[in-house]
C-alpha cells in the first residue's frame, strides 16, 4: 500500500511536469512559427518577436517547480523516501492537477495569442508594449494554478 501511495505521489510530479511542459512546447512552437515568418521578411524584429515567443514557455517552468516540490515532499530528491499511504499519494496527485491541466491549456492558448501579437509587431513595431499585454493576460491563470498547486503540495502532511 505504501508503494502505491508513493506511485501516486510520483505520478503527481509527472503530471505537473508533463502536461505543463507539453502546453509550453505547443505554445512556444506556434509562436515560433509566427516569429520565424516575421523574421524571414524583417530580421530587425528578431528581439521583439523572440520575447513574444518565449512568453508561453513559463508554464513548463511552473510545472517543473511543482514537480521539484513534489519530489522533495516525497523524499525522492534527498534519498530518504517517505512512507506515503494511498490517500496521501492521491492527495499529492490531486494537488498537482491544477498546474498540469491549466498549464497545458494556457500554454497552447498563450502561444496562439502570442502568434496574434507577433502579427501586431509585424505591422506596428512601436506597439510592442501593448502587443505583449495580450498574451501576458493568459499567464494570470497559469500563475493562479501554480499557487494552488504549490500551496496544496506543501501543506499535505507526509
Amino acid at each position: 500500500m505504501g508503494e502505491l501511495g508513493l506511485f501516486f505521489g510520483l505520478l503527481g510530479a509527472a503530471v505537473a511536469v508533463l502536461f505543463a511542459g507539453a502546453g509550453s512546447a505547443l505554445g512556444v512552437g506556434i509562436a515560433g512559427r509566427a516569429a520565424a515568418g516575421v523574421v524571414t521578411e524583417d530580421p530587425n524584429k528578431f528581439a521583439q518577436v523572440l520575447i513574444l515567443q518565449l512568453l508561453p514557455g513559463t508554464q513548463g517552468i511552473y510545472g517543473l517547480l511543482v514537480g521539484f516540490i513534489t519530489l522533495s515532499k516525497i523524499g525522492l530528491l534527498g534519498g530518504n523516501l517517505a512512507s506515503i499511504n494511498l490517500n496521501t499519494g492521491l492527495m499529492i496527485l490531486a494537488a498537482c492537477l491544477p498546474i498540469g491541466i491549466v498549464g497545458l491549456i494556457s500554454g497552447k492558448s498563450q502561444g496562439e495569442c502570442s502568434a496574434a501579437s507577433i502579427g501586431i509587431v509585424a505591422k506596428k513595431p512601436d506597439q510592442f508594449g501593448k502587443a505583449m499585454l495580450f498574451p501576458a493576460m493568459v499567464e494570470t491563470y497559469a500563475i493562479l494554478a501554480l499557487l494552488i498547486s504549490i500551496l496544496a503540495v506543501s501543506n499535505i502532511p507526509v
Binding site: 516569429a35 515568418g37 516575421v38 524571414t40 521578411e41 502579427g119 509585424a122
Partner: peptide, 17 residues
Amino acid sequence: DWDFTYAVARIRVLETH
C-alpha cells in the same frame, strides 16, 4: 488553420509594403 501561422506572419510584414 494553425499550419498557416508562419505564412500569415510573413504576409503581415508584406502587407506593410
